[in-house]
Nucleic acid binder design. Sequence first.
DNA 1: TATTGTTATACTCTATAACTATA
DNA 2: TATAGTTATAGAGTATAACAATA
Lengths: 140, 140
Amino acid sequence: MTKTAELASTLRVSVMRLGRRLRAERVVTDLSLSQMAALGTLDRHGALTPRELADHEKVQPPSMTRVLAGLEERGLILRTPHQTDGRQHLVTLTADAKALLKEDRRRRDAWLAQRLAELTQEERDVLRAAAPVIERLTHL
Amino acid sequence: MTKTAELASTLRVSVMRLGRRLRAERVVTDLSLSQMAALGTLDRHGALTPRELADHEKVQPPSMTRVLAGLEERGLILRTPHQTDGRQHLVTLTADAKALLKEDRRRRDAWLAQRLAELTQEERDVLRAAAPVIERLTHL
DNA sequence: TATTGTTATACTCTATAACTATA
DNA sequence: TATAGTTATAGAGTATAACAATA
């Protein structure tokens, strides 16, 4: 096994494990995972049509219809007509949705910051150098 | 915002993103996510009772009954009677299940190793130093 | 009497097929 | 005729409630 292959294996295990642990810290809501995921995607990409959202989330359009209906009922999304195409509309987040996502991130960051505070300064420096490299891996 | 809080935020984003990308590489099977997750837990923890498995996966016992029925039908698990308690039994992985999990890990490692190979030696060294620290975060 | 595991049944989520409106 | 979005309906997956076997 090459050194790079070994690195891949140990990095995969540690990253997957930390990811699992972070997901466990997510904010408690009565929203389904699909609904939370749709909010997250809208937050990252800005306004999208239902079709674009369905493609992003890899679900069929009728499924997205139901996800959006639930979010609209709770006041978490708004629909605005498309400029030129009367069939389409754009979905955007409300202030409530943005606050919910912010709280979700805050909880996970708080958990992680607590753990980071228990490391040595050297260990934190190692992670500070690694974070942008990990980020770059997903863009290659 | 403190430096540690900033680190928590950037590290969270990059780790979650890489985790998502790695999950997308998982082996294609006709098994449900719950079934794959149960196999993974058995692989990590060794033989468990259905109740212990249900607790680990945070599902109710009747749900685990169905998950295990599907896995047993495909020859991926075996049940052995409990030594002293006639009500319980232990669930273990078959060779087929271990091979499936191995292939799953192999695929993700292959994807990641490919990406790592595109980095500089210095960047790989940074990640090599970071992996055990990331691992340690989940044990604190 | 309490606990493990299963069966019976209902609810949630997602999918495919069919329909409406617009391009 | 094709596409965006919705409605109708069916198929997985998980939950609660009730039951059988053992402690």
